[in-house]
Design a protein around this nucleic acid. Sequence first.
DNA 1: ATCGTAGTACGATGATTATCGTATAAAAGT
DNA 2: ACTTTTATACGATAATCATCGTACTACGAT
Lengths: 108, 108
Amino acid sequence: MSARILEHPSIEEIRLEAVLHALADPMRLGIVRFLAESGRGVPCSEIELAVSKSTGTHHYRVLREAGVIRQVYHGTSKLSSLRRDDLDTLFPGLLDSVVAAARKRSAV
Amino acid sequence: MSARILEHPSIEEIRLEAVLHALADPMRLGIVRFLAESGRGVPCSEIELAVSKSTGTHHYRVLREAGVIRQVYHGTSKLSSLRRDDLDTLFPGLLDSVVAAARKRSAV
DNA sequence: ATCGTAGTACGATGATTATCGTATAAAAGT
DNA sequence: ACTTTTATACGATAATCATCGTACTACGAT
């Protein structure tokens, strides 16, 4: 099987409601914050999640299908990164304000 | 009965995830956009929603309990307004970017 | 007092969601 | 070939959520 290509919405297909919904979960918000701070492609295994692996996969898929992250295979692992350019183009300031708020909140 | 006082979360109780969740619904996003543009207290009846009255009540409650709007009784009607100050204090730029994105999106 | 207006409360229902465990697949290293 | 690592697929389950209709309440006007 060679289904090693992952489906991503094009920039025109990204919907604000889906992005907000994807961000409205503490686990996914944590992933986004991590990616925003690392600024590179990060394998899923590098982000500690307090849930099972299959649940983790689920959350990554929600983020990808909403257009928040991009994922590419790299060997056995899969690298995730923020679609910062696309999001900033579509919703200027949104990602920054959410990440900043999430960072501040968890700094308490 | 005089339970005419509505429960609102204090500013310390407002959680980012709850706000994002409240905004991640097209109906509620429409309400928020309307309130942002009118900039005053608006009775529920003034905002046309394509759902039943009880569903409308539900959405207003979600917004209020998340801390996005403030509601006060005024005679038989109830006036809703954005908690812009509180939201801007907690999550600078968030509301503006969401409203701007929602406005642009629906302008298509 | 009665009526209309504005909105709530209370179930009920169907849809979506988060979570899990187990079985599976794909790639890299031995 | 085998093993390890990384992550997916598939079904199951429990929780949450959006929606509705009906009955109700509170207020203001007649």
